[in-house]
Design a protein around this nucleic acid. Structure first.
Lengths: 225, 225
DNA sequence: GCATTGAATAACGCATACGCAAATAAATGC
DNA sequence: GCATTTATTTGCGTATGCGTTATTCAATGC
C-alpha cells in the first residue's frame, strides 16, 4: 500500500503544484504577467482554485497578484539573493549547530552521508543536474536533522525563491569541488558533536556560495532572474 | 494627506485584519474550530473572501483549514515556542549585526532609542501593556535597521504566532527590568559599529526571553496557548 | 450490547455570474 | 495637434449555487 489509492487531490492543490512546476522550468518566466483567466484555462479549471493557489504562492514569495495587471512571477534581483542567502546562512547554521547537539549516530546520519556520496558520484561523471539535486537534498536533510519545523518551512520557501537562479547559474559556475569538502566537514563536526564548528563551517559555506552566485550575476550581467 | 482618501479596502483584506484581531484578543480561542460559513456571517460577508483570508492566515501559521472540521485556530505548545524563539534569535541577531555594520547616525537610531525610552516610562508607571507594545516596536525597528526585508517578514510572522502567549504571560512574569538594559546595550553596540557585540548581546537577550517564557509555561502548567 | 452498514445531513470545493472599477480607446473641445 | 473628457472594454472581487464527500446517526445483524 504505497499510494495506490490515488488521492483525489483538490484542484487547488494541483494548481499549486503545476504553477510551481511552470515557474521553476521557466515556462512562466520571471517578470511575466498572466491573467487569472489565462492560467485557469491553461490548467483546465475555473478561476477559483487558480486564485486560491496564487494567493498561497504569493505568500510563499513566488509571485504577486496585482489587480488588473495579472499574476506577476516575481523576478529575483541580486539584492534579493543577498537577503535570501543571509536567511539561509543563519537558519541552516543554526540547524547544523542543533544537529551537532543531538548526538546522532551513524545510522541517523546515513541519509546525509548518502547525499554527499551522491554529489561525489555526480561530479565524477560530470552530471551537474544530479549534483544540484543531491546538494539540495543535503541542505534539506541537514535542516531536518536540526529538528526545527519552522526552519524547515522557511528554508524551503527561500530555496524555492532562488531555484531558478541556481538552475541558470549551475552551468556557468566553476565546478563545485570545494563544496563537497565543506559538506564532509559539516557532517564530521555533527557526528563529533562539535556544535560551534558545525555552525561556523556551514555558515562560511553558505556565505561562500552567496559570493559565488553574486559574482556570477555581476560578471554575466544577470539583472533579475 | 495622511489617509484621508479612505481606500475601499477589499473584503478579503478586512477579513484578514478582523480574523487576526479576533485571534489575538482571544475572541477565537486557540484550538477552537469555526466553520467558514460561521465566520462569514460573523464578518458580514460571503464565504469567498473569508476563505481567501483563511488561506493566507494558514500560510502565516495562525490557523489551519481542515475539510469538514472547520478552521482551527492553532495553539502554540512549548515546543513551538522553542522553535519560534530560536528563529527569532538567529534572525534578529543577524539584523543587529547588520545594523551595526551600517554606521547609522543618531538621527537614524532615534526611533530605536525612542522605543527604549518608552519602555522605561511604561515600566516606571507600571503600564505593562505599554511596555509590551514598546518592546514590540523595539524588535520591529531593530529588524528594520538590519535592512533585510525577508527577515522583517519572517520575524513578523513568528511574532504573530507567539503574540497570544506573550499577552498571557505578560502579567505573571517578573518585571522586565533587566530587559531594557539589554536593549540599551544593543543600541550602543550598533551605534558604535560593533557587529560582534550587537549580535551576541541580542542573541543572549532573546535566549533569555525564551527561557523565561518556557519557565512560566512549565510552572503554570500552560500546555498549549 | 457491540459492531457494521446504510441513509441523511452538512460543509466544502469549485464553477458560474455579475457589478464595479480601472485601464484603454474614442471623441470632443480648445 | 494636444489635452481633457467621455465611452467602452476588460479583469477582478465577491456572492451564489450545486455536486461531492466526509461525518453522523440510525438501523440492522451478529
Amino acid at each position: 500500500m504505497k499510494d495506490q489509492d490515488a488521492k483525489p487531490l483538490s484542484n487547488t492543490q494541483r494548481a499549486i503544484q503545476e504553477l510551481r512546476a511552470l515557474i521553476f522550468e521557466g515556462e512562466l518566466p520571471a517578470g511575466s504577467d498572466h491573467l487569472e483567466s489565462e492560467l485557469a484555462e491553461r490548467l483546465g479549471m475555473s478561476r477559483t482554485p487558480v486564485r486560491e493557489a496564487a494567493l498561497i504562492l504569493e505568500s510563499q514569495g513566488l509571485l504577486e497578484m496585482r489587480p488588473r495587471k495579472g499574476v506577476r512571477i516575481l523576478p529575483v534581483s541580486a539584492g534579493d539573493m543577498r537577503e535570501i542567502y543571509d536567511v539561509l546562512t543563519e537558519l541552516e547554521a543554526h540547524a547544523a549547530e542543533q544537529a551537532a547537539a543531538r548526538n546522532y549516530g551513524p545510522a541517523e546520519l546515513a541519509v546525509l552521508q548518502g547525499t554527499i556520496d551522491d554529489m561525489d558520484l555526480a561530479l565524477a561523471r560530470g552530471d551537474l543536474d544530479a549534483w544540484a539535486e543531491a546538494d539540495d537534498r543535503f541542505h534539506t536533510e541537514l535542516v531536518r536533522l536540526g529538528g526545527n519545523h519552522r526552519i524547515m518551512a522557511i528554508v524551503g520557501m527561500m530555496s524555492d525563491q532562488v531555484r531558478r537562479a541556481r538552475a541558470i547559474t549551475l552551468r556557468i559556475r566553476p565546478l563545485p569541488t570545494k563544496s563537497n569538502e565543506d559538506h564532509r566537514n559539516v557532517l564530521r563536526a555533527i557526528s563529533e558533536g562539535d556544535q560551534k564548528r558545525a555552525r561556523t563551517i556551514h555558515s562560511t559555506h553558505r556565505q561562500a556560495a552567496k559570493a559565488v552566485l553574486l559574482g556570477l550575476l555581476e560578471t554575466h550581467r544577470l539583472g533579475r532572474i
